[in-house]
Structures are given as C-alpha cells and as structure tokens.
Design a protein around this nucleic acid. Structure first.
Length: 465
RNA sequence: GGCGCCUUGGCGGAGCGGUUACGCAGAAGUCUGCAAAACUUUUUAGACGGGUUCGACUCCCGUAGGUGCCUCCA
C-alpha cells in the first residue's frame, strides 16, 4: 500500500517494521466540547486507512488517544486548560466534562461504523508515563524550569523545524503570539505545567516539579511509546498538527529515545463549510447529531467523506450531503438485489475485478473517489447481470467485502417480509389479469410500507424508497 | 513579513500529456396499462496570458482571484 508521507513529502510504500503487524497512532479528540463534521471527516479517513491496511493482509495495531487534560487554549502565560474552561462553562468538574464528551465522541464513532482501535487511551490514565518521559528528557538536558513549569528547549533538538519546513526566523516577524518572556525560544513548549499558586484545579498531580498537569504534546509521545514501542509505523492526525503538535512530538520523542519516532505521517486535510473554515467564532461546527436529525444517516455522512480525497481541502455542504444521500440510496437499491437474486449458471461475479479495483484504488494513497467510481460501476450493471449470479450467496459475499473496505453497510441489510413478498406476487398476478385497479392498490399499500416496485423484463423488482 | 496550496461542466469531485472519471441535479428519448425504475442520449469542463510538445485540463513561466498555516484547532 502506498501513502503520502508528510515526513518525506512523497508517496511512499507502507513498510511495517514487524510484518504483518503495522502500528498506527491516531491523534484523537480533546474532549471539552462536541465533535463536528470536520472531526468526523478526519476519523472516517483514518478508519479507511486501517481498513485498507487490513485488506492488504497486514494486522493493524491501532492506538487512539483521548486528550482529557493539558490542552491549553493558548500557549501564552494565561493560557488555560480547555477542560477546566469547559468545566466552568458547564458548572461541572473537568472530570465530568471529559467523561461526557468522550462518551459522546465514542457514540458518534460507533454510529459512523468506524472500526474500534485496539487501544483507546486517556491522557489522565498515563500521568506516570508522562512524568517518566519528562524525567528522561531532563536527564538528557533538553529541559529547563521556569516559574510556570518545565519547558522543552527546542534549540537543543537539531532539525526541529524540518518536519514542518518552518522558517523560524521569519516566523517571528508576523507572529501574534504573546511570548512568554521567560522562554528561551519562542517555539519552546511546556512539558509540565505547575498549578499556579493559590489555585486549585480539578485535575492536578504531584510531580518532581511540583503539583500540576502535563503539557499537551507529551501525552502522545508517552502513550504511543508505551503501547507501540519507540518507533511507529504510521502516525496520523489533522493537517493542523504538523507545525506544532507533531513537530513537538518528534522533538521530544526522538530526543528521549534517539530513534525515529514515526516512519510515516499521514495527515487529513481540513473540511470547509460554505467556503469557510470550521471554527467556534463562525459557529459553523455542525454536529453529527444535527445531520442525523435532518435525515442524513451516519452512512450518508460516511459516503460524503469518501467522495473526496483526504489530502484535498474538501467542502461540506447540504447539497453535497443530499447528493450523497441519493447516491447511497441507489447503492442500497443495488444491495437489495441480493435478496432477489436468482441462482443461475452465469458466473460473472466470480470473475469480476470490482473488489480488486476497489482495493487497489484504496491502496493507492487512499483514492476513495476512485473506489466509489468502481462501486458505481458495479451498481450500474444491468439487472440481468446482478440478478443472475452464479450463486446468490456470492453477491452477499461481494457486498460484505465491500463493507469491510468502505463501511457502508451494504451487506447488513435485511430482506423484506414474506407478507410483503406476497403483496408483490399478488400485484403481479393482478397485472397478468389486467386488473389495474387492484394492482395499483397493492402498489400503494407497498409504497406506504416504504417499498417501491419496478416492473422489468425480469419480473417485478422491489426497492426501498 | 515568511512558508504553502488551490482555481475542472448547474453542484460535488477524480485521474491522466493523446482514449467516458464517477456521483447528484436538469433535459430529451426508449420502454411501460399508468407510474416508477431502468436504459440511451444530452447540457460549448478545464481562471486568464504565454511557452514546451506532433499533441496539454495534465509539464514550465507569468497574471488574476481564492485560500491554508505561521495563535488553539481534525
């Protein structure tokens, strides 16, 4: 499988260190608020990566973190923890806020049909590991202590700027960040923040540097090393993480271990809403729940995600969601033919290359639009082709494999009831005797149950409306 | 100020130096008891100006517009 690697800026072959295992670390949510469509685009794409790796014969070992502490609103002196801020906003404790939004996130995750990572790890469950890692960095001389905590001296890590291709000198000219005067370099970041004197946080722990909480970046390094070893095969995240979060992860991890932190970096581009970036100030962060309430199932959202490439800046719009809904409906109509297939000696499904084509599209840097084009080609096969399979079960097996790759639930649909089938048969009988009144009445009855019937050369074919 | 990206038909969105992307929507036709569906066809696609080439949407240069990052962010 080939994947665009942010580290090399080329499309590289995925080469796991210990085949068939492939280790993947995904930067997960910070659970201080609801997830919006932009987040879900990101996670569906990560899920598609894992599905494709599986189909390639690899065994993914997948870790995703949940950030429930330490993610600051800004890096300035007065930057506060998002969780603590959320707690004040809602009159709860930071712990309650974290639990609430983590659960909401996992609900959305499951609704979208994303595969479950092997480990979902919380920052607050790994404070000891993070402290250990800071100590290692301290021993190696990469840290310094100032009033508000322990900082990483980025000037000590050679090549700090190379991953993101930053020009640190020129950046300072236009930087709007309020620089902490005690920091040695503008890019230095907190490894451990002390609870300010006289304050009491919901979340704080003892450490060699005083009571406080870990910086945001250290959690990913500590947890990925714990579960997946010093060097990851693939690290994934949003494109916005390249210049700060992932740059810092590399600096601290590689400084601590002396080894490469991740062989490949896969980044998902952002989604725009009506041409605008999704942001709090614009209030355009649409939740999954809102889409569902408007009649778009999570699978419609999923199809909408797959319709664009993960590296392009894609557009979210109600029109394109509507288009995805219609497209999914026609895929489901195709899938429902599995219940109407007539066994025959026509063996086309056995020799078809649809699955191979979908697989190779995905293996080519997750070309999901191409994969869908192949799926549409399958759906555009004539009724005759689709209905007369060698064995009906092969049709279902084909759909099941498509589902393994794309997660669209084509194979998990259920048949209509035998009563409904009888109605269809009766209508067909009425048509044979040219009893149009009766046949139309039966058609209406079926329509009321959400079932449409189309009369074809192969007899009546039902579909769900 | 620095770094980067984009500009494809009504909308969404791909690949590709010469061959139909694909989907959604619209139009016409075929079929049909009527519908629906299906099928067929269809709507001057490649921001603009140059260049390279036998040939460019696809490579190069420039112009215009847009946009992302450098501040938290998927």
């Amino acid at each position: 499988m080939k994947l665009y690697n942010t580290l090399t800026r080329t499309i590289d072959e995925v080469q796991p260190q210990h085949q068939p295992t492939v280790t993947i670390y995904t930067c997960g949510p910070t659970v201080y608020d609801y997830a919006h469509v932009g987040h879900w685009f990101n996670y569906v794409r990560m899920d598609t990566l894992v599905r494709t790796l599986k189909a390639t014969g690899l065994q993914p070992e997948w870790v995703m973190n949940i950030t429930d502490v330490g993610h600051l609103v800004s890096d300035a002196d007065d930057g506060e923890d998002k969780l603590e801020k959320g707690a004040r906003r809602e009159g709860k404790t930071a712990w309650e806020v974290a639990e609430f939004y983590a659960k909401d996130f996992m609900d959305g995750w499951n609704q979208l049909g994303n595969l479950m990572p092997d480990h979902i790890v919380k920052a607050t469950d790994h404070i000891a590991e993070q402290i250990e890692l800071v100590k290692r960095l301290e021993t190696k001389g990469y840290t310094y202590v100032i009033d508000d905590g322990v900082y990483y001296d980025t000037s000590k890590f050679e090549g700090y700027a190379t991953f993101a291709r930053l020009d640190l000198d020129d950046q300072q000219a236009g930087a709007r960040v309020a620089v902490n005067q005690q920091k040695r370099n503008p890019t230095d970041f907190a490894l451990w923040k002390r609870t300010p004197a006289g304050q009491k946080r919901d979340m704080e722990w003892d450490s060699p540097w005083g009571k406080g909480f870990p910086g945001w970046h250290i959690e990913c390094s500590a947890m990925s090393m714990k579960y997946l070893g010093d060097t990851l095969d693939i690290h994934t995240g949003g494109i916005d993480h390249i210049p700060i979060h992932h740059t810092n992860e590399i600096a601290q991890s590689e400084a601590a271990t002396g080894k490469r932190f991740a062989v490949m970096w896969m980044h998902s581009n952002h989604v725009m809403v009506n041409g605008d970036k999704i942001s709090k100030s614009l209030g355009n962060g649409i939740r999954l729940q809102e889409l569902v309430e408007k009649g778009f199932s999570p699978q419609v959202v999923r199809l909408n995600v797959l319709e664009s490439h993960y590296r392009s800046q894609s557009q979210f719009s109600w029109d394109s969601l509507e288009a995805a809904k219609n497209r999914l409906a026609s895929l489901y109509a195709m899938a429902d033919l599995q219940f109407q297939a007539k066994d025959s000696t026509k063996p086309w499904l056995l020799g078809s290359t649809y699955l191979d084509d979908i697989r190779s599209a995905l293996q080519n840097d997750l070309a999901t639009p191409q994969a869908l084009a192949v799926l549409s080609a399958l759906a555009n096969q004539s009724d005759s082709q689709l209905l007369h399979t060698h064995e009906a079960k092969h049709f279902t097996e084909l759909l099941a494999t498509v589902d393994e790759l794309l997660g669209l639930n084509l194979s998990t649909r259920t048949d209509i009831t035998s009563e409904q089938k009888q109605l269809i048969a009766k209508r067909e009988q009425a048509r044979t005797t040219k009893d149009w009144a009766k046949s139309d009445e039966l058609r209406d009855t079926l329509a009321n149950q959400g079932i449409g019937v189309r009369d074809t050369a192969h007899g009546p074919i039902w579909y769900r409306q």
